[in-house]
Nucleic acid binder design. Structure first.
Length: 384
RNA sequence: GCGGCUAUAGCUCAAUGGUAGAGCUCCAGAUUGUGGUUCUGGCUGUUGCGGGUUCGAGUCCCGUUGGUCGCC
């Protein structure tokens, strides 16, 4: 299912191939985020044209709306959203911690209130796997506890122990291919790959311990979670290094929720294969485009009569057909096309970046290429 | 023509006779397992104009101009 095809001589970057039920995914890969069974502002047809090979959806959101019965009845998430390539669902762990109003965490799972209608619900490791079996994604995620970056070390320790315990239960449930109530969709177990999630905050020992415990389960892949939760960039990269060092080389590594283009290059260098991040799509909706030089705020007054495309060398639909002046006008006027064009551009940028990275690794030029890229790319302001 | 009301930031409007403000717009930022949201900053005034009263006037008085409503 996963093969490492080439490894850089100067760092841990590798080019790989991940084979799942709905196709082959070449890594390093960026996965556009489609939380509510849609990558916001773009159609599946456009995603195919952008050469997206795998996208995300979110169990938590699907579970509370429209609900599993609906998706089960409509034949699973692939058919529901008309996406025939690879699909990954997040377990809902993160959302329970970031969105739910009230929640009570016990060793068996999390009791919480829906952020939509206040309905009281429960998700634990077994529930998370069952939900994701109904949804039917190619890759499913273990149910984890994602504490805030600022949490005390004891609390992070508790989260790590729970996350490991829950991962074992998820693996059990996954292996058992249990009956799924209310589902017409029966997916053979081998068609869904379960990924474990490493927690441990900024603590080297906890990251290592968590990664080792999960590695012992011999899951098809591993994610690094508990990042993109407000930590400074350097600490984030260190957390990635701690986790990566204890993960099996032969399995894909997925950095959850990350990151900026320069951060992705840094993480590829550290051996990460898979990424998802809302930035290219979210920031597009606020009028910001990614370019090889950094971000460009398209609402800026100085662009009001600029005939140039967002980015000169870009081959995306927006850049091939429209000026900055026009796109700025659409954004200022609140027109939907503005959001769509910037989203298409940003996804084109991210997906193209990954193809370039992969080609550089394969040809042995990744070290030189990445230095050049990081030299030119001016990141957004530091977090604080 | 007569009478009433009214005139304050680009817009809509606040401000006991005591340092002219708010919302929106505009400008500049933020956003990392989603947030078309939201948040943080910033610019802008001969208070229609001319006089007067007062220690002090956006505020009170007189005149004037524009707007608006009503009446011959």
């Amino acid at each position: 299912m996963f093969e490492v095809l080439a490894t850089d001589s100067g760092c841990k970057a590798r080019a790989g191939r991940l084979t799942v039920a709905h196709g082959v995914v070449e890594t390093p890969v960026f996965m556009p985020v489609g939380t509510q069974a849609t990558v916001k502002a773009v159609s599946p047809h456009e995603l195919r044209e952008l050469q997206a090979r795998i996208i995300l959806a979110n169990s938590y959101h699907m579970f509370i709306r429209p609900g599993l019965e609906v998706i089960g009845k409509l034949g699973g998430l692939h058919r529901f959203e008309n996406w025939d390539r690879a699909l990954l669902t997040d377990s809902g762990g993160f959302q329970v911690f970031s969105l739910a109003k009230l929640r009570k965490v016990t060793d068996s799972g999390v009791h919480f209130q829906s952020h939509i209608d206040g309905q009281r619900l429960f998700i634990g490791p077994r529930e998370a796997v069952r939900i994701q079996r109904v949804l039917g994604a190619d890759i499913i995620m273990a149910f984890d506890e994602c504490p805030p970056w600022t949490a005390a070390k004891e609390d992070i320790d508790v989260a790590v122990q729970r996350t490991v315990r829950w991962a074992r239960i998820c693996a059990e449930e996954w292996a058992a291919a249990a009956e799924i109530p209310n589902s017409k969709l029966q997916i053979p177990n081998h068609q869904q790959l379960l990924f474990g999630i490493v927690q441990g905050g900024g603590c080297a020992e906890l990251r290592r311990e968590c990664a080792e415990q999960l590695a012992a389960l011999d899951l098809p892949g591993y994610a690094i979670g508990g990042v993109s939760v407000g930590e400074p960039e350097e600490e984030m990269l260190r957390a990635i290094e701690y986790a990566e060092a204890a993960l099996p080389v032969a399995k894909p590594r997925y950095a959850m929720g990350l990151g900026q283009p320069n951060q992705i290059v840094e993480m590829v260098r550290r051996g990460v294969d898979m990424f998802d991040c809302v930035l290219p799509t979210r920031v597009a909706r606020n009028g910001t485009a990614y370019t090889a030089d950094g971000t460009l705020n398209l609402k800026r007054a100085e662009l009001k009569d600029d005939p140039a495309p967002i980015e000169n060398e870009c081959g995306c639909y927006a850049c091939q057909n429209f000026s900055r002046a026009y796109i700025r006008h659409l954004l200022k006027a609140g027109e939907i096309l503005g959001l769509r064009l910037v989203t298409l551009h940003n996804l084109h940028f991210y997906l193209g970046l990954m193809r370039t990275i992969r080609a550089a690794i394969v040809s042995g030029e990744f070290g030189a290429w990445s230095r050049q890229f990081l030299e030119r790319y001016k990141p957004r302001e530091d977090y604080e």
